[in-house]
Design a protein around this nucleic acid. Structure first.
Lengths: 340, 340
DNA sequence: TTGTAGGCGTTATCAG
DNA sequence: CTGATAACGCCTACAA
């Protein structure tokens, strides 16, 4: 394959100037005689001409691409989020560069570097919790950053779109309390993440409000990666006092937690009530179907892209936005009144 | 926010020429006095200087971004594929622009247009089956296209990375035949996709080889989207003769199919043996755990990115490659000898 | 309606 | 070792 045709080749071949070709390329920039346009288009077709995005971006300072930094596409929650973000982005004519951190701050740091070099206009990210200065720097460099699902409290100037984590945990806890449970355990994400902290807070306040003492051994903050969920369940079930109900507020560990429960001799919901965060394709397929807190992923995606896009176009006033959407609680058969 | 610092700013500020700065940037290009280097690095840090990827790409003809066109991120198979592709791409220092088609040829067509404008170097895609000319044109424009998971036979010049679909279906079928089943049903993807066709072919040839007649009503090719899987199961179970075993070779419809089976009065595997295509996080969580054909997603991703990258670097001879990797069959408890 | 020319930020080629 | 300077492909005033 010979070297690609440039705008100049097209111009020469069509017997016009590059300016004209440029105009037909992004029509609206200036006037072009219909007949001339036709000829130019024909030549572009014939030469299989393709404008170089690099040259274009270099020239016109702006970009139509945003970065999407997700923790882990293996988690259905993030996968669906990615799906919706791509969808919303397409509706606005912008492109999405996808990066993953695998929950690893080092990889996240690399991703941020990449994003800086790529000179994307905006970034939508689920931060690991580390790299505080780095995120700050990215934002300071003029990149519009939007945190979604999680946030970093030390960075109050960055837009945030999350569900009401605290409230969601309260609702889930209230549900179990109302059923009559008092020995409720909670498995959450790491303390380094806003979701991990907020959900525990919600759990505590619901318990407190109900006048039920919290057994500290019943609160387990575990990493997103690895099999920490299984271990947490084992530890909870092997203690001197066993919980009668369990909330898993760590979406990435629901699978491992459930798996371990299934391996135990306990049956749901007779011996243990279970409520998990995040609804996904299989929560209804297992037996019994799981009671869940369903995150409105569409809304998260919509608002994040909206923010990213608005900032890109400058059609939004300064000052960080914090958008909070409510999650739904869906009761299914994995939670019931305690039998003991 | 002031405008970003350029290489020239750094040069001026450090009292050197841009050439020197460029050299320290990509060290190895030329000699730089240690002392000078230090000073330049310091200035770069101070000015928060970041090289512009666009300018760099413009200068050195190459692009470091590839397009990834997936059918549906909601399907765990594609989500995991995306995860691995991003991972492999990162390892090679290239970026991934993500697009989805939702199995819709129109959206796919749009995506191809986007890809043309973006001037990505390579594209990894799971084609819907339509847009044959359009894919051809993209390839002709000099974009290295790699089809993964599915292929389009009319485009033999395009690289392909798939699992051995025919063989996988045969293995699954043989498994059931060996257990003693003869009334085996098969739900596959649409006839318009290579996977849909190949898996049915494999199913047929296994049946034929075993000398078992195929009941045509037992073969259902259904769309990836919608609830076609449920309907197919209903239709299979309500017929005059009921199958004793079912293979679902349509990864997107496994969920719906299983759900419908659960709603029926049949219990697995006593009344019906079930084997599904694609292993994923929940196949082992449902009861009974499902026998599956596991696709080696890592390998699919590795080879596709490898091809995309090699073509980008020109470090590979002409002529389309067709890479075929074997899938694993994993027996679990959803398949057993027929009880009738 | 069309053409000319300068510049976007880097890298690379030569002279110093 | 370092410094000018010419590309790279495109857009966009400003002229014609």
């Amino acid at each position: 394959m010979r070297k690609a045709a440039t705008i100049r080749d097209v111009a020469r071949e069509a017997g016009v100037s590059v300016a004209v070709v440029s105009r037909v390329l992004n029509d609206g920039t200036g006037p072009v005689a219909p007949h001339t346009r036709e000829r130019v288009v024909a030549v572009m077709e014939r030469l299989a001409y393709r404008p170089r995005a690099a040259a274009r971006e270099l020239q016109q300072q702006s970009t139509t691409t945003i970065g999407l930094v997700l923790a882990d596409l293996t988690n259905p929650f993030f996968a669906r989020l990615a799906d919706r973000v791509v969808w919303e982005a397409r509706a606005r004519g912008i492109h999405v560069v996808l990066l993953t951190t695998q929950e690893d701050p080092h990889l996240e740091s690399d991703s941020i570097d990449t994003l800086i070099e790529r000179s994307v206009g905006s970034v939508i990210a689920t931060p690991t919790g580390g790299n505080v200065e780095k995120w700050a720097r990215l934002a300071q460099l003029g990149v519009n950053v939007v945190f979604v699902d999680r946030e970093i409290e030390e960075l109050p100037d960055i837009d945030v779109v999350t569900i009401s984590n605290e409230l969601s945990a309260e609702v889930a806890t209230d549900h179990l309390l109302r059923l009559g449970h008092t020995r409720i355990a909670f498995i959450s994400g790491p303390e380094t993440t806003s979701t991990g902290r907020a959900r525990v807070t919600g759990f505590r306040s619901a318990m407190h409000r109900a006048g039920v003492a919290v057994d500290e051994r019943f609160i387990q903050s575990v990493p997103f990666r690895g099999t920490s969920g299984s271990d947490a369940v084992s530890s909870l079930l092997s203690g001197p006092i066993r919980p009668t109900a369990l909330i898993v507020g760590n979406t990435a560990q629901v699978r491992n937690a459930l798996s371990r429960v299934q391996q135990s001799s306990l049956s749901l919901p007779q011996d243990l009530s279970l409520v998990v965060f995040d609804d996904n394709p299989w929560t209804e397929l297992v037996s019994p179907p799981l009671s869940v807190v369903r995150q409105p992923i569409d809304m998260l995606a919509l608002h994040s892209v909206d923010l990213a896009y608005s900032r890109l176009k400058g059609s939004i006033s300064d000052g960080a936005r914090r958008i909070r959407v409510d999650a739904d609680f869906i009761q299914r058969s994995s939670s019931a009144a305690p039998t003991t």
